[in-house]
Design a protein around this nucleic acid. Structure first.
Lengths: 352, 352
DNA sequence: GCAAAAAGCGCAAACGATTGTTCTAACATA
DNA sequence: TATGTTAGAACAATCGTTTGCGCTTTTTGC
């Protein structure tokens, strides 16, 4: 059909005899403002339709310094947590006529740095970044240079960077309290990437919950170093072989919990008889697991949506003011993976 | 830090005294070709680094008619199947210096049509589309207009459009044969969106497997109309209440299988004692479900990677030749969700 | 010593859209 | 008739890169 090369203003101009200026103005709804006659406008509009004219976004972007595009930087889009967020970011952006360039950083800070640079070069109007989380300077640079940005999930509360994240402290606190209420005292954490804010906050929540229940905190019971499944598997394996096996595991991500489950099965143990488990971040299938998994549910949709709103706010205001941080509450979902246990005498003593 | 507006060729030019032309050439590695002295080149390269120069992709794209960007159109990025594919597409594209604009169509053909149009206007160099799947003309238009495109998953084998998809026929055939080998005769299908090629092919595989085993095909035992979880739930509910309840369910997607599991639980039935189940598309958590789920595994990575390769092939060749279709084999994964059952006398007779 | 070749680089147009300014009629006013 | 208005539209610059061609200067060959 349309084998001719693309219709441009020039094409229309020579076809109609009007200047590109006039045509551009009409097509941008500025006919009145520039006193272009209704008659002319009609002709132009009709013809543009007939020739299926679409303005070249590159040219327009170049001129206007507006691309109507946001960059979305994600450590692993195949992680359902990030996929959900990506979905809500995309949807919210689309509502406002914006598109999304997706960059998967494979949990690799170098790729993340390159991606951010790439997106700057591509004239993004804003960046939604779920960083790997251990370093922030490349993100601060962006913000200081005036490019709107919002950090999600692994944020940097002590840097001047806007962020949206779950209330990890509260979520962990509730989860651990729940375990304690069920009689657990030896509660292991399989953590994610260290020195990231979600990880730190969850550990704080963990510690505070222990503290408030007068349970001593044993450092060696916090293990692991990644939010991935393999880490969950490996660390659970080790934990389970210890002679004073923990009675419960708090997995810092949905993937970690999957890995832990695998290890538990391999060791011929079962949930929750032999060991209880709670995972951070709920998943649709948690209900159907061998033992339905208790979890700290994050509000994926809210996170993505609010993050995108913050970007648009920045784009509109044009002034990189003081960064605001938003904490989204979590919700503890109780399922069968937690067993109520008798406290041992040993532990009773500890309490005394 | 870098509060000055972006460094451009002009900035560099006035700073260094060389023309934009020369600088551009050096920075594009064409110094030799245009006989620019090593000395000059070094100065320019160093300075570009110091001033953190990144070429404006819009300007370059305008000039070169190249955006180094692919459009990725997906019905639902939060579906792990599509998320996995998105990941491999992004990765493969990145390898070649390309970026991805992500459009989620929410399983809605209208949004899909708009997205495709949007991406054309945005000068994408190619489109990877996982269509809703019931209509193809807007995609054909794109291909005929010379824009490289490849369809994944819900393809259109009888249209002239390149595609990559799992061998759905073979996958279904094997799954059903496996069920039959285990004594099942009354095998229900909860299908996805009708008149899409994966759905059609899976049904063909289903029917042929029955046929080759001399089992009569009952139309009323194929139900459902969407790949979503709700459909799986609803249809399973109905199936389970029938007096001649099927002995096995073949779920046409991972989400459908989740919905079906929910229904099965609600009816106080259990897998595989009361009913066997096989799902199309394996998921990492299938191993850990109440009863580990047998499934037809699709090679997500392969699909995304090969699709992207086909796009690049088209981009390079510049000639929209006859479209090629690629079928990726599936793999049947046997887990505990299928029970070996006695054939009833009734069915034995049928076989005779 | 002098034309020819090579080295080293810049000029200016082009990509397609937008916009402040300017131009040209036609019409109105005095 | 001379002057002022206004409607209607075009000019030309701009955004930042790329590239065909052309322009100097230096080097080479004999």
């Amino acid at each position: 059909m349309d084998h001719s090369s693309k219709t441009t203003l020039k094409t229309l101009s020579s076809k109609l005899g009007f200047s590109e200026t006039t045509i551009s103005r009409v097509l941008n709804g500025k006919a009145e403002k520039y006193r272009i006659s209704k008659k002319t406008a009609d002709i132009i509009i009709q013809s543009a339709k007939d020739l299926n004219f679409t303005p070249n976004i590159l040219a327009r972007g170049l001129r206007l310094k507006k691309t109507h595009t946001l960059g979305l930087v994600i450590p692993d889009i195949s992680n359902p947590f990030f996929a959900s967020i990506a979905r809500s970011v995309e949807r919210e952006a689309r509502k406002f006529g914006y598109s999304i360039i997706l960059c998967d950083t494979e949990e690799n800070t170098n790729i993340e740095i390159k991606s951010v640079q790439l997106l700057r070069g591509r004239n993004m109007e804003g960046l939604v970044v779920a960083p790997v989380g251990q370093t922030a300077s490349h993100l601060e640079d962006v913000y200081n240079a005036g490019l709107p940005i919002v950090i999600i999930d692994r944020c940097f509360p002590n840097k001047n960077l806007p962020y949206v994240t779950s209330d990890n402290y509260q979520g962990a606190y509730e989860a651990i309290s729940y375990l304690i209420d069920n009689g657990h005292r030896r509660i292991a954490c399989i953590q994610g990437l260290e020195n990231t804010s979600p990880n730190n906050d969850r550990i704080r929540g963990y510690k505070d919950a222990l503290l408030n229940n007068h349970i001593p905190y044993v450092k060696s019971i916090i293990v692991g170093d990644s939010f991935g499944e393999l880490n969950g598997y490996t660390e659970a394996k080790i934990l389970l072989k210890k002679k004073d096996r923990p009675t419960a595991i708090f997995a810092f991500s949905n993937l970690i919990s999957l890995g832990a489950l695998k290890a538990i099965e391999e060791e011929n143990l079962s949930v929750p008889e032999d060991i209880s488990i709670v995972a951070f971040d709920d998943q649709p299938y948690f209900d159907h697991l061998a033992t339905p998994m208790s979890s700290v549910a994050q509000q994926h949709n809210e996170i993505g949506q609010i993050a995108t709103k913050i970007i648009f706010k920045q784009i509109k205001s044009k002034t990189s003011s003081v960064a605001e941080g938003v904490l989204i509450p979590t919700k503890l979902i109780k399922r069968a993976s937690v067993k109520r246990i008798q406290q041992s005498i040993y532990h009773e003593k500890e309490l005394a």
